[in-house]
Simulated assay, not measured.
Amino acid sequence: MTIRVLIADDQEMVRAGFRAIIDAQSDMEVVADAADGVEAVAQARRHRPDVCLFDIRMPRLDGLEATRTLLANGPGPRIVVVTTFDTDEYVYGALRSGATGFLLKDSGPTLLVEAVRAAAGGESLVSPSVTVRLLERLTEPVVRGPRADEVLTERELDVVEHVARGRTNAEIAGALFVSVSTVKTHLEAVRMKLGARNRTEIAIWAWEHGVVG
């Protein structure tokens, strides 16, 4: 199956570079690109890509608003927002708006390809260490509704804590001495209980509710 990708960035060189990398992959193709957020939304609706790469800062409509617009009425493409990390304070909002994850703008070709494949496969983020840094920087534990231990079982909380620390299913399985399939079962139960769309939202919930400290 070929992963169909849309690239939206106001810098032509960035779009061209991303296109060259993605089109060089046997399992990917760029179906469209856009120079601003309004065009990105229109192109996404027209071409129905599997994955969108949205620059956070774009003319007319930024990546955050473009993400909200596309996902406002239900499931849409997997959206990875592109950030410079040190200056973009909007990433947390993008993740809360339904973006699958984010990519550092200066990431190399390997990470870009991994980001697209991860998003297409339903994974939330490519670089776990960056996930943790982002969440630590942009969130503080808050109490919203029932306590975490009133919503999830003790083992589910164990799994969620590892997810929030950016660990993969295999790493979680190793740490908890269970199989990867068991980890997946727990994560699906967690996702259903929390109404989360992906691992990112599970991680955000964990940080917001003090599961990770």
Rank of each mutant, 00 (worst) to 15 (best):
T131F: 13
E123A: 07
Q43T: 01
I202W: 06
L134G: 03
T200P: 02
G121F: 03
R96S: 09
F85Q: 06
N198D: 15
I204C: 09
T2A: 11
L134D: 07
A189G: 13
A203V: 08
K193G: 11
R117K: 10
G145T: 10
E154T: 03
R147S: 13
V116N: 02
D62L: 00
H162R: 10
I3T: 11
W207S: 12
D149A: 09
G122M: 06
L135I: 04
M1G: 11
A203Y: 07
E89L: 03
F102M: 01
G121V: 00
L194D: 14
P109W: 08
D10V: 00
D106V: 00
V82I: 15
V81Y: 06
I56C: 09
I3A: 05
M192K: 14
W207E: 14
P109H: 05
G213T: 07
R155M: 13
G174R: 13
E140F: 07
P77F: 05
R144A: 12
H162D: 09
G63P: 04
L64P: 09
G121Q: 15
V151N: 12
R144Y: 02
A206P: 08
F54G: 10
G37Q: 07
H162V: 00
V51I: 02
W205N: 06
I202N: 04
L64R: 08
R133E: 14
P59L: 03
D106C: 00
L112K: 08
Q25V: 00
H47K: 13
G37M: 03
E161C: 05
G210M: 06
I56Q: 12
S181F: 03
D88F: 02
D106R: 02
A24W: 01
K184W: 04
A164M: 03
E89K: 05
A189L: 04
K184A: 13
R165M: 11
R133F: 06
Y90R: 15
A119R: 08
L61W: 01
C52A: 14
I22V: 15
F54Q: 08
V211L: 13
D86N: 12
H209K: 13
